[in-house]
């Protein structure tokens, strides 16, 4: 883990890092990665990765409309809305 990597990662995660913090962050993340690297102490070839604790199958929902319009409730505490729209700084593609 180096400075450039952490800058790229922070950008992906949309986390702001001040220049003077970079070194501390890199070193604390490196400590964690060292702990994590202990995983390499055992061989895991031909082990199936486990994504869920139980092997259940996905339940399917019937295709019914049950929701009603709750826009006012959802936007009640959001002052950055207008005429039912959420507003963000102008995006230029």
């Amino acid at each position: 883990m180096d400075k450039d990597t952490i800058i790229k990662i922070a950008d992906l995660a949309k986390i702001e890092i001040k220049q003077d913090q970079i070194n501390d962050i890199v070193s604390s993340l490196e400590k964690i990665l060292n702990l994590v690297d202990e995983m390499n102490s055992i061989n895991t070839d031909n082990v199936k990765p486990m994504a869920h604790p139980l092997n259940l199958k996905q339940e399917l929902r019937k295709d019914k409309v049950l929701e009603i319009n709750n826009r006012d409730l959802f936007q009640k505490d959001n002052k950055y809305t207008d005429n039912g729209y959420y507003k963000v700084p102008k995006i230029i593609d």
Binding site: D82, G84, Y85, Y86, K87, V88, K90, I91
Partner: peptide, 13 residues
């Protein structure tokens, strides 16, 4: 995202 609704903001639907 609707970009032409407000002068300085984009509107999200």
């Amino acid at each position: 995202s609707i970009h032409d609704l407000y002068p300085n903001e984009s509107a999200i639907d």
